[in-house]
Amino acid sequence: MSVFRDPTIEQRRIRWAWTFLALPIVFYVTIRFWPTADAFVLSFQKWNLLKPREWVGFDNYVTLWNDPVFWKVFRNTFVYLIIGTPVSLVIAFIVAWHLDKVRFLHGTIRALYFLPFMTSAVAMAWVWRWFYQPVPIGLFNNMLASLGFSQVAFLNSTSNALPAVLAPAIWAGLGFQIIIFMAGLRAIPVSYYEAAKIDGVSGLTVLWEITLPLLKPTMVFLVVFSSIGFLRIFDQVFNMTTNDPGGPLNATKPLVLLIYQTAFGGSFEMGYAAAQTVVLFLILLIVSLIQLRILRDR
């Protein structure tokens, strides 16, 4: 045990390093990894919090496979992703592209775009919820009615509700994406643009041949980041539809809300909720792996 009695400087360093690392490691293992592993175990069990856990094999997964609500929710989750990510990225890029050229009140405008990102999602969801109400209290419908148009059922409709819930979620994320895009735009060497100018290349070609290819790392980062965000959407949906969370008729329900309801919504089906969580974990894993693959192809 000479290491302990007479450590070298190197050994002492390592010992200190481990001492400092121990705390975060213990923290992560107990707070993150252990519960995660436990969720996998729980997905093969039945547990309502009150009674001891019971092994049920693949029952929870079989129930999941045969549950029409799960498939509806599965679809919704991907609709949030497939509409949310491209729409938010395109809007964010267009705003950033133009904002990059604006000098007048540049900081103020940028701050205005960033503001929704700093606002609490709950507060924002409630404000939008009021915007969407029917006459006489809804802002949008009051405007439509005063212009002589008929009302639009934004939230109380199986077809409109999901886009209506998604809109504020996209809007809230814009500020962050714009800032990242602008940082990406600033990082492109000015000499490329100067060279293009000397060659007399059109603006569109500059965008297509210089700006976009050089923004690829930025875009991949934003795609990964916002995809995970949309796959985990919860706050906006839950707060805009609290009377019938995820409704009407499950039209807006994402996977995370389904998990929440299964676990805490009334019957405490912890095992079934854990099985749903495992599915969400796999989806996030696969989507992230695909996107990282694309990043490596660079």
Partner: peptide, 21 residues
């Protein structure tokens, strides 16, 4: 009730199916 919120939801959905669908 066995699961009040679940059983409530059943009727919420029934009315929505009639009104919306």
């Amino acid at each position: 009730f066995a699961d009040e919120s679940g059983q409530r939801n059943v009727l919420v959905d029934a009315v929505n199916r009639m009104l919306l669908e």
